[in-house]
Every structure is written in structure tokens, then in C-alpha cells.
Design a protein around this nucleic acid. Structure first.
Length: 415
DNA sequence: AAGCATAATCAAGTGGAGAG
DNA sequence: CTCTCCACTTGATTATGCTT
């Protein structure tokens, strides 16, 4: 739902004018200019060989120029719908301690005595909320104030596993925090049309999480109303909490076995217990979910998949923006001789997923620049990953985002 | 130190709702 | 009957305070 906020920042020719003309850029510009000219020429009458009048400007040329102008105007109008909020100083979020008296939730006795108790849930949700907010910057006010709360669609089962407690305990903690007004949780239902039948099913839990002190978290109708995920598609692709947990458990067990072989007998002071491994992996899955509900991987989200390092395999694996974000870090591991190929594949995957085939070279360049930045010690890959993630959220939440490349370029420049 | 009450948590079971 | 989300209940299990 695009908010109609006026402070727009639309650089005129977003992707074309950059400072130094690198090789990749000139290649890209050539490709671009070709694509640009093909259309108007087609529309022009078959070009009566240039016998211009004394004024110098033949009629067909005028027509062409007019068409070009029109096209540019159209493009610009389209682009102006895609707005980038002007860069304002964003106020930092309050820390968790300022939002909630954590000590009150620390169990005094019983099995969980001395642990954080419900505070652990608060901490987890706080972190997920920060991540969710980082990819939804439009939630900030004009003055850079953060919103009073953020609503996340999550999976209670995953959350419980990631925290290392049972679902019962999670529910208990949730009601505790809800009484304190720190959060408000409710199941979210989705209606899917299958064979023309309207079907209601639960597709996750909604959590409204406090971000401003003394604010009572609430869910509103609009929060329930939104569609967060496509349950059928997720199920078909195996993106279910059930699978995520099963996979995590399986991987942890395998890791345990291989480690046991290495270490031999002394398993007493294992640095990463299998349960810790599972928790870490599921927390990572939840981070992905917080950004895009239901978007969990069947692969291990913590480790770069070695298969991706091989360009041939990568071409098969990289399906969309999310996969590319995930695979960006593998650029660090891949052998120099294969790096260019991998970047090409990543750029192609982005162009394909964003339905923006013209900009393939542009995406490649972006990734290459990010890699260069990384080499120079700046966090280029991470920044690019964040922006891509951000773009992916916008793509899902706003309809009619026609020029993802332009938006990405504007944002990368602003960053 | 032993004993009991209490609090926090877990494990397991029930149920719902729709699909396959 | 199983899968995939969830809610709710009941009886253990465990760790801690407060007695005696």
C-alpha cells in the first residue's frame, strides 16, 4: 500500500549518469542505448532517405524526437510513482531495557530460575522487529521518528524452537508480555481460493511489538486484513516451519556425528551443542521470515552452500532476489577465476526475477561495485544485500513497482 | 539437613479446520 | 490417516524458597 507522501527524491536519469565511466558501464550504456532506440524507430515511417528541407529538420525526425520525448515523459511519470523517501536523520530505536522492565520476567524459582524467562522472548522479538523495520523504512515518520510499534508475521513454532522452549512455554511468555503491553499476538488467517472454494486456514502468528516506551502494542484490522504469505506456494516449495525444524535437526545431528569423528571421545566441552546449532539456524530462518513471511530456505541459512560456489550449480540454484542475497557472501569464498562467472549469474538471476531483462548488465555492475567496496574494507556486500532485501519487501508490499533497477540505483546512491 | 509448598517448565494429549 | 498451522488442558519433572 503506497503511502502518498510528497517528499520525493527522483534523480532524473537514475542509472545512466555516474561519475567515472568504467568498462562495464560503457558496455551497459551501449546495450541500453540500443534498447532505447529500437522502439521509436519502429514506430517511425520507413524513413524517407534524408532529403531535408532548408530548415534542416525533416518531418520524420521531428516525429521521432516527439516520440522520444513522449516516451521519456512516460518513463518519468512511471518513475515518479516509485518514491524514495528523502534522506532524513533517522532517530535510533530505544533499547529493550527502556521498553520493558526485563527483571520482572526473570523467573525466581522453578525450572527456569535465573534465566531470562519471558525476557528472552522480548529480546528475540526486539531483534526481529529491528530487522523488520530496517527493511520497511517507510514506517519512519517524516521527522525520522521510529514508529511506536511494528507488526511482524511470524511462526510460533519456529519461535519456540529458536528460543529453545516448548510451545506451551512460549504461549505462557506471550501472555505475560501481552499483559505488560509489550506485545499483542493473534493468529493470522488466510483465505485461499482452490477450485473456486474459499478456504480459511491459519498461516502464522501476528505480533505487534512495542518500539516506543509506554506504548501498548495493538493489532489493528488492517494488520489482520493484509495477506502476508501464499501458504499454498510455500507448502508446495517446502517452505514450512515443520520442514525448517526437521532440516535443522537433521543438519545438527550430521554435524554432531562428523564432529564426534574428529574429536574422538572428548565431547564434554563441545563449543556448539546440537541444540545450540538448531537454535542458531532457526533464528536465522526467523530473521528471513521477519523480512518476508514464509521465506525460509530448505538449505542451511547459516552456511554458504558450497554448491553455489560452482557457477554451473549456481545457475540452477539462484532463482530469485532472495537467493542472490543469500549467495552474495559466497563471493568472498569463490576462486578468483570463477568470480566473474558467478557475478554474471547473479546479475542474470536478479534481472530475471525482477522482470527487468534490460538491466542485467546494470545488476552485474552493482554486484561488482559491492565486491570492490568489500575489498576496500567497506561493507559493500552487506549493504547491497540489505538494499536488495529492502527492494524485495517493497516489491511485495507495493503493487506496480515497474522499475526496480531505478529504485535500487537511487537508494544505493543515497546510502 | 530434611521436608514441604510453590513456581516454571515440559511432554503428551485433545481439538479444530481444511487439504490431499 | 497425515500434514500444517494453531489453542487449551493435565500430569509429570525440576529447581527453588521457606519452614522445621
Amino acid at each position: 500500500v503506497p503511502v502518498a507522501t510528497p517528499p520525493l527524491l527522483i534523480p532524473d536519469q537514475v542509472e545512466d549518469q555516474d561519475a567515472p565511466a568504467t568498462l562495464a558501464q560503457t558496455v551497459e550504456r551501449k546495450a541500453r542505448s540500443k534498447a532505447h532506440y529500437r522502439k521509436p524507430l519502429k514506430a517511425t515511417p520507413p524513413a524517407p532517405a534524408a532529403q531535408d528541407g532548408p530548415e534542416g529538420q525533416p518531418a520524420w525526425l521531428l516525429d521521432t524526437l516527439r516520440l522520444l520525448d513522449q516516451q521519456e515523459a512516460r518513463e518519468r511519470a512511471e518513475l515518479s510513482r516509485v518514491f524514495v523517501r528523502q534522506q532524513v536523520q533517522r532517530q535510533p530505536l530505544p533499547r529493550l531495557e527502556e521498553l520493558l522492565a526485563l527483571e520482572a520476567f526473570r523467573p525466581k524459582r522453578g525450572r527456569g530460575a535465573g534465566t531470562a524467562g519471558a525476557g528472552a522472548l522480548a529480546a528475540g522479538l526486539h531483534e526481529l522487529g529491528r530487522i523488520g523495520l530496517a527493511t520497511r523504512l517507510y514506517l519512519y515518520g517524516k521527522d525520522g521518528q521510529p514508529p511506536k510499534q511494528i507488526v511482524l508475521h511470524l511462526c510460533a513454532e519456529l519461535l519456540a524452537e529458536a528460543l529453545g522452549v516448548s510451545e506451551n512455554t512460549l504461549r505462557d511468555w506471550t501472555t505475560q508480555l501481552q499483559r505488560a503491553g509489550y506485545l499483542y499476538a493473534c493468529p493470522h488467517y488466510t483465505t485461499t481460493t482452490l477450485d473456486g472454494k474459499q478456504v480459511t486456514a491459519v498461516d502464522g502468528m501476528l505480533y505487534a511489538i512495542r518500539l516506543a516506551p509506554d506504548h501498548t502494542a495493538r493489532l489493528r484490522y488492517q494488520d489482520y486484513k493484509r495477506a502476508y504469505r501464499n501458504l499454498d506456494a510455500d507448502r508446495a516449495a517446502g517452505r514450512t516451519a515443520y520442514n525448517a525444524i526437521a532440516n535443522a535437526a537433521k543438519r545438527a545431528e550430521e554435524a554432531q556425528i562428523s564432529e564426534g569423528v574428529q574429536d574422538g571421545e572428548k565431547n564434554t566441552a563441545g563449543s556448539c551443542t546440537p541444540s545450540g546449532q538448531i537454535k542458531a539456524e532457526l533464528l536465522e530462518q526467523l530473521r528471513r521470515w521477519a523480512v518476508i513471511p514464509g521465506n525460509i530456505t530448505t538449505q542451511n541459512p547459516l552456511k554458504a552452500d558450497p554448491a553455489v560456489i560452482d557457477p554451473d550449480e549456481a545457475a540452477k540454484r539462484l532463482g530469485g532476489v532472495q537467493d542472490v542475497v543469500h549467495a552474495l557472501s559466497t563471493l568472498l569464498d569463490v576462486h578468483a577465476s570463477k568470480r566473474a562467472a558467478l557475478i554474471g549469474i547473479m546479475g542474470a538471476a536478479l534481472a530475471r526475477d525482477l522482470e527487468d531483462q534490460h538491466s542485467r548488465a546494470y545488476y552485474c555492475k552493482i554486484i561488482w561495485l559491492a565486491w570492490q567496496a568489500e575489498l576496500e574494507g567497506r561493507d559493500g556486500l552487506q549493504a547491497l544485500g540489505a538494499e536488495l532485501q529492502h527492494l524485495e519487501v517493497d516489491r511485495r508490499e507495493w503493487k506496480g513497482l515497474r522499475r526496480p533497477a531505478a529504485l535500487l540505483a537511487a537508494r544505493l546512491r543515497a546510502a
